[in-house]
Amino acid sequence: MKWLRRIYIAMVLGFLYIPLAVMVVYSFNASRFSMDWKGFSGEWYLQLWNNTGLLTAALNSLVVAVVSATLSTVLGTLIAFTLTRWRFPSRRVIGATLFVMMMSPDIVIAISLLVLFMLLGLPLGFGTLVLAHVTLCLPFVAIVVQGKLHGFDPVFIEAARDLGAGDFAVFRYIVVPLVTPAVLAGWLLSFTLSLDDVVISFFTTGPTFEVLPLRIYSMVRLGFKPEINALCTIMMAITSLAVIIAYRVFKEEK
């Protein structure tokens, strides 16, 4: 039984991580063209560093991710508060539309936004891309924070008021600290959603503003370059770091 369980665990982990491992290993492969192993090399990382186009795209991606994650976290948190705190007629409808937005295929969101932007005469670029990513991320933040607020016992608010806290003090000293973990989680989710989005970005950004996933996409179409392996390895390292930090933060909270 014990070895059976071990095999099972190995299969699950292998299924998840073998592709990533292959990518990491090949990012250090000295061979340029073939998938044969030609020895260890850090060359592609060096080339990456000199590829200004790629670096610009990466920087663009980071900026868009930070800005849109922050915007959607602010808006999504406000929506979550509104939906849990007040009972108004369209509350259920708005709650449902959040799910509809979350479930909609990216391509549908992308096309609809493109049509809207063209109708409004907005030039495609940084602005439209951020707007599109906020649209993408907003429902996720709202739903994550709403989940936390639903589990939030209103007796804490009563206890704080009973002890002399006014509305602002309740928000500042009770609600914010208790909800922060969920808000942070929403931000991280938005950040990653924005960072690796291809479809929506493809339709809603212009030629003057290129983001990393699109850049990689076009690079691969012209032929696979080993720099891409190196680039993806770096991105993976950054994501892992973010996950570790997030885990630490939440553990502190507990």
């Binding site: 007796v155 009563e158 008021r161 002890l163």
Partner: peptide
């Protein structure tokens, strides 16, 4: 008069201690 301006304090059934 709202609860925060009343000279009464409550011990709640669930205690309602602030977990953070």
């Amino acid at each position: 008069v709202p609860p925060e301006r009343r000279a009464v304090n409550t011990v709640f059934q669930s205690y309602a201690l602030f977990p953070h």
